[in-house]
Design a protein around this nucleic acid. Structure first.
Length: 548
RNA sequence: GGCGUGUUCGUCUAGUGGUCAGGACGCUGGACUCUCAAUCCGGAAACACGGGUUCGAUCCCCGUACGCGCUACCA
């Protein structure tokens, strides 16, 4: 055991005592059962969709219990830090309306960046050292690698424990000698775990869990030759969550294995243990198997992906809530967003992120919005991701409204579901704006369905020549029907199916020619409505272009 | 390797010691549309495997397989 003087000499002389911090961050005055939760994103890139997922649960559980939700940036791995990441996080949280009660600028339990909490960590490291619950370890990278290699060779569990913990029982003289030589060191926790011992704990989602006790003398403070001196996740978790008075730690299930270590740390520090809830991670289909969504390999693992594409935040939240608590997926969207999440109802398996289902949900949701609402949302999105579209929408707002008015609005029983995300707008409605529309002139274009160019040309020319901008939908469509007959199309799909060789196609295919000419797409709102909105001149311009 | 954790239609899941194992997305057939989509109706589609316990097991127990995670001075 080191002399207290030796220990203290390792730290700044004005380093506060634990009692100082305890007073600085007193227990919260909160109602019975209030949960204080926190998310600890690591600023190593974009926010992972899993982070948003867990943050949403944190936010919800804290709110419904009258507690608080904290975002604490876990930037203790400075080598992997990416500049600007924190701003990205904040934008993402804002987009989805999952904002913390306490973070950088708000809250009295900060600072909320771990890199700014060095003094706090050092206080508690010194305390552990004074009590001999931690010790200095001067092992080099090579020695550590050698230990691991030997353990693997003899099929022993790897780690720094028992006889492998070479610095655990060094004498004060030996330590002093290393110190005098100026060798860098880390501080390790002196684990009280014994071989064969087991620990069990309760997880709010999974119930009783059992694990062999930790025996590893984990590193709690990183290398002494770095500044600032930062703790490892394990130690920061114990110190921060205690001092921030967090009482429910919701995190990914990859932490389950570390709980025994965390429990030992809380006990050694004299902190009250916290409750844990381990969430199953979001997965991704990969060939026949599945794996965790990876920030590096999967674009959709990044929250930015959803923001950039313009998925409505409510739809994404609704989808995610359904994954958290399947019960919520059966509720109408607005109710599901209000209904409380229940930890005990969380799945334990790890769901695959199904973008197709998300899109279905998003389409349903956008269909409930009014034209003006949609334009507003698209404009907000486009201001960042499609600036050109912003000016089109404001310069030609009437066209935009008219376009979105087609088959949409309160008087329509089955509104169109052709918008899933804001970036769909150009493809689905761009043709309403002359400035965004590109004439279809290539009669071999595959959108036209493979009809002969001559037929297409003749049909389009005929249509344009006799075109009347009729107000009645049936009469208007009568023009297509008549021409279809004249050019040899079957009067209806059934007839065509019965005798496919006798016709180039049916009225369907004929109508598609006009659809593609007018909209550039195989899918569009009602043709008559489009033609009326576009106006006769524009209709003729587009159809003539196809005629050649 | 060790430890942990998980496994109901393709996907998200509901569910119980006796159910025709339910729903949703997707897929698919049809209806409605003399046009796209939407909508409506129908269909195919699952209890990982092997042992127990039991009159009976998808459900309880034990194994096996497979997935995932941890085993870092990464979180």
């Amino acid at each position: 055991m080191l002399d207290r003087a030796v220990v203290d000499a390792l730290f700044p002389s004005d380093l506060p005592e634990p009692s100082f911090w305890e007073e600085q961050y007193p227990p919260r005055q909160l109602p019975e059962g209030a949960k204080v939760t926190r998310l600890g994103p690591s600023p190593t890139g974009f926010l992972h969709i899993g982070g948003l997922y867990v943050g949403m649960i944190d936010r919800d559980v804290a709110s419904q219990s009258g507690g608080a939700y904290i975002v604490r940036v876990e930037d203790t791995d400075q080598a992997r830090e990416v500049p600007g990441a924190v701003d990205q996080f904040n934008r993402a949280f804002a987009y989805f309306g999952i904002e913390p009660d306490e973070a950088d600028s708000v809250g009295s339990y900060g600072p909320y960046h771990q890199s700014q909490r060095e003094q706090i960590y050092l206080t508690y490291v010194r305390e552990l050292l004074r009590q001999d619950k931690a010790y200095l370890c001067f092992a080099t990278k090579e020695e550590l690698a050698d230990i691991t290699a030997r353990q693997q060779a003899t099929k022993l569990p790897t780690g720094y424990y028992g006889r492998w913990a070479i610095w655990r029982d060094k004498t004060a003289e030996e330590v002093q000698e290393a110190l005098d030589a100026g060798r860098p060191y880390v501080v390790r926790f002196r684990s009280p775990g014994k071989a064969g011992e087991r620990t069990s704990f309760t997880d709010a989602i999974r119930g009783q869990l059992e694990h062999e006790a930790n025996r590893n003398d984990v590193v709690i403070l990183k290398a002494s030759d770095q500044s600032p001196r930062l703790p490892t996740y394990h130690f920061a978790h114990a110190v921060d969550d205690h001092l921030m008075r967090v009482n429910l730690v919701i995190r990914g299930e990859e932490w389950i294995s570390s709980v025994p270590t965390h429990l030992q740390l809380f006990d050694a520090l004299g902190f009250e243990r916290v409750e844990y809830a381990h969430i199953a991670p979001l997965m991704k289909q990969q060939g026949g198997s599945r794996r965790k969504l990876s920030k590096r390999k999967d674009p959709e693992a990044s929250v930015e992906y959803f923001i950039e594409a313009g998925y409505p935040a409510e739809a994404v939240k609704f989808y995610m809530r359904g994954l958290v608590n399947a019960r919520l997926a059966d509720l109408p969207l607005s109710e599901a967003l209000e209904a409380p999440i229940s930890l005990s109802e969380c799945g334990v398996a790890g769901p695959l992120v199904d973008l197709v289902k998300l899109e279905d949900i998003a389409a349903d949701h956008v269909a409930t919005l009014s034209g003006p609402e949609i334009i507003e949302r698209i404009s907000a999105w486009a201001s960042t991701y499609d600036p050109a579209l912003v000016s089109v929408l404001s310069d030609e707002r009437d066209s935009a409204l008219a376009a979105l008015q087609v088959e949409r609005g309160p008087e329509v029983a089955n509104p169109r579901k052709d918008l899933r995300k804001w970036s769909d707008f150009r493809a689905a409605y761009g043709f309403f704006f002359p400035s965004l529309f590109e004439l279809v002139t290539d009669r071999t274009d595959e959108r036209l369905g493979g009809l002969s160019p001559e037929l297409i040309s003749a049909f389009a020319a005929d249509f344009a020549d006799g075109y009347a901008d009729l107000e009645d939908g049936q009469e208007w469509f009568g023009q297509i029907r008549e021409l279809a007959g004249k050019h040899g199309f079957a009067p209806n799909p059934k007839e065509f199916k019965k005798n496919p060789d006798a016709y180039p196609g049916s009225i369907k295919e004929a109508a598609q020619l006009i659809r593609v000419a007018l909209t550039g797409s195989n899918r569009s709102p009602d043709l008559h409505a489009i033609a009326r909105t576009l106006g006769k001149d524009e209709v003729l311009r587009r159809v003539r272009a196809l005629a050649g």
